[in-house]
Design a protein around this nucleic acid. Sequence first.
DNA 1: TCTGGGGTCCTAGGACCC
DNA 2: TCTGGGGTCCTAGGACCC
Length: 401
Amino acid sequence: MVTDTPILHVDMDAFYASALLRDRPELQDRPVMVGGGHRGVVLAANYPARAYGVRSAMTGTRARRLCPQVVVLQPDYDLFTAVSASVMEVFRRVTPLVEAVSLDEAFLDVRAAGRRAGGPVELGEWIRATVHDEQRIACSVGVAASISVAKLASRRAKPDGLLVVPPDEVTAFLHPLDVGELYGVGDKTRTRLHRLGLVTVGDVAHTPVATLRRDLGHHLGGHLHDLAWGVDVREVSPGRAGVFGHGGPPDRSMGAQETFGRDTDDREVVLRELLRLTAKVTARLRSAAVAGRTVAITVRFADFTTITRSRTLGEATDVTQEVYAAAVRLYDAQGLQRARIRLVGVRVEGLVPRQQVERQGVLGERDRGWADADRAVDRAARRFGSAAVRPASLLGPGAGR
DNA sequence: TCTGGGGTCCTAGGACCC
DNA sequence: TCTGGGGTCCTAGGACCC
């Protein structure tokens, strides 16, 4: 297909809320948010809730203050994953060049699209109609020559719309926008730019790139200057987003973290949580057939300051006890006797395919017993569900008696 | 009841090697 | 005595995205 705007960005509207509301039509027109329970933040809000100022990433407390009558729904990730897979499948009917960014958004390159009906706009409208018919969820589409402009266009098209930005209108579209709209500009960078007097994308575009590099760092400075002129050479790469299991590049790390119900200074409580999180992570490593050399822990204190500590091992591992032992060493090395701890996390980095490790004859030989125990746990989890199997020290007092 | 959980990438300093 | 210059790995922190 010959077109000067071959990139589509498709973004579900209020995805988590929309997915849950499919089966709760009576709530459709009432303000609804997903998540935001004890110590949690809002994961998604439907448009009636947004009318009250409720936004994702806001604390549940704040959201309820803004909208006391808001209906709170619990997230259902199995449902979200299933709906997402169906939606992505719709995209692939248009083109194989689909890059899933997350469960609810994707880039499509329609240059190689078949003869399905017309140009990018027709394809975009077909996707919107089909997703709506088959999945009962509204989505918005941005159409442009590049990934970054398509992404901004879909945001402007919301809710339930489509916006094309032709190449000769890119700067007119971009330059009035606030710098915070640019991909890669979060709260911190936006504030810094504003303090430098750079408020709009046009301001960034007309600042010498050397100045931007000096003030923001070499990479970010150059990147933002490019984006401000709509220069973005990144291609849609279907290999990305390994979460969806489409044979993309393997993940670079896997981790798990959790905020305690209330802050704790009890080493035993912390270690039990580290073991639980480690078991969760290593089970994922094994099911993905990868192992990692670096073990990192995260500790967040009551005042929200957060530290990470990491240690690189001699060889990659997926063995629960090895990762756990490293995590405990890292934790104990901090000497946190009296600290009030809010959250701990465990992450394994530097992942490589397990065969690579096995070929070196290492994995499983060092601690055959522990590796065998892990395999037994994996088998039992497959048969009885993961809730049925966990390390003995995670069982409460009296368990098994 | 202020502030989740899953990630990626960049920067920067020091160690270490050639 | 008067001191290079890269390259890579490791660690810690921070910003960002969804």
